[in-house]
Nucleic acid binder design. Structure first.
Lengths: 206, 206
DNA sequence: GTCTATAAGCGGATAGAC
DNA sequence: GTCTATCCGCTTATAGAC
């Protein structure tokens, strides 16, 4: 697994530790993640971690912050084409037809981190913000499309939540099941939702 | 938290241990779950657990099996009305307008258990089966509706996956965020998907 | 079936040398 | 900044009494 911006053998020590923590997380899972395992992955002493972070929790929250920022930068940069093209590109980027092993690893780690939100207020806040950001991004695309006359005058928050919901469901499915047929179906469903945005009366009556 | 069929102070010891494990899970989270915490919740010696289960993993998989069976019995029993009514009842049951504290606790524990599927093949198999079962259940409702002339001739697997996806997304949102507005939007989106099943040309053209 | 006692090791975290 | 050494509590799991 490579870490763009936080490569395994370069960057600040803090970033190398975060990268090592990610790899340890991918290998051992959140429940079995130990400071020692992170040190092993880092190839340095576990106690070094305590010079750079207060404790395990501090490190893991920094890890989450880093990856959420990374994710935002990678997927949520407003694109330069017309609204519908931008929206379809966004959907394709979040739900590509196939995923590399690296991306699948990321989806799994991400799924485990999200589950921490069930227990931890701090995690819950971060994932609440992430989801809101996703919905806002999609809402902006839809609104722009309506103003451009590309989309019908739909209920924007509902349509945005609908699209994001299908996307995140598919990502969870990729992380926690082997249901590949589900992904194909969701891609079809997403297409039909996107088509519906263009106008709800495309199909002829009876 | 009560456990229908596995009440805290009755039933077989095995079941009481599973109930205690659930409560400990709800209190401490999966990562911080210890045998001692389960014993405390049980009000008995932690070592008793090893008489009834091989180890922690064995117990937790039994817990998951029990709750999946419980869930299946509670939510997936084929109802007795017409297909559309059955389907809408199913959706309402999985996504009620409000959730009790108990149900929210269940959603949180469930979210944490699902996340284990990112790491564990055994969990992954179980959640793959659960999701497939949900989709099959919805597919059956839709097929019955098509045969009864209640629904249009839609792509059944896609429509079923679409509905289940929105439902599971909303459940995850309830477990891991504070985005209550999202739930309302998803309920509206679900209604529109259900309405669309009745025929895709309900709305007049231009 | 359930308990007490305990083994044996791992966990997070700190002190202090370099 | 990074390391070695170390503390100590807690963890899983077993042995054996009752």
């Amino acid at each position: 697994m490579t870490h763009p911006g936080v490569r395994a053998d370069s960057g600040s020590t803090k970033h190398r530790i975060i990268a090592a923590a990610f790899d340890a997380l991918a290998t051992h899972g959140y429940a079995d993640l130990s400071i020692k395992a992170i040190g092993d992955e880092l190839g340095q002493s576990p106690s070094l971690i305590y010079y750079h972070f207060d404790d395990k929790d501090d490190l893991l929250l920094a890890l989450l912050d880093f990856h959420l920022a990374q994710f935002t930068a990678e997927y949520l940069d407003g694109a330069g084409a017309d609204p519908e093209t931008n929206l379809r590109a966004f959907v394709d980027k979040l739900l590509p037809e196939t995923v590399s092993a690296d991306k699948r690893t990321f989806l799994r780690v991400y799924a485990e981190l999200r589950a921490q939100a069930a227990q931890s207020e701090a995690y819950r806040e971060k994932f609440t913000k992430l989801d809101s950001l996703l919905v806002t991004t999609v809402s902006d695309f839809i609104e722009a499309g309506i103003e451009a006359g590309q989309f019908a005058d739909v209920d924007v928050p509902v349509a945005a939540e609908h699209l994001v919901g299908l996307l995140l469901y598919a990502m969870q499915t990729r992380a926690t099941t082997t249901r590949t047929a589900s992904i194909s179906s969701i891609r079809v469903a997403l297409d039909s939702v996107l088509d519906d945005l263009r106008g709800e009366a495309v199909r002829p009556s009876s």
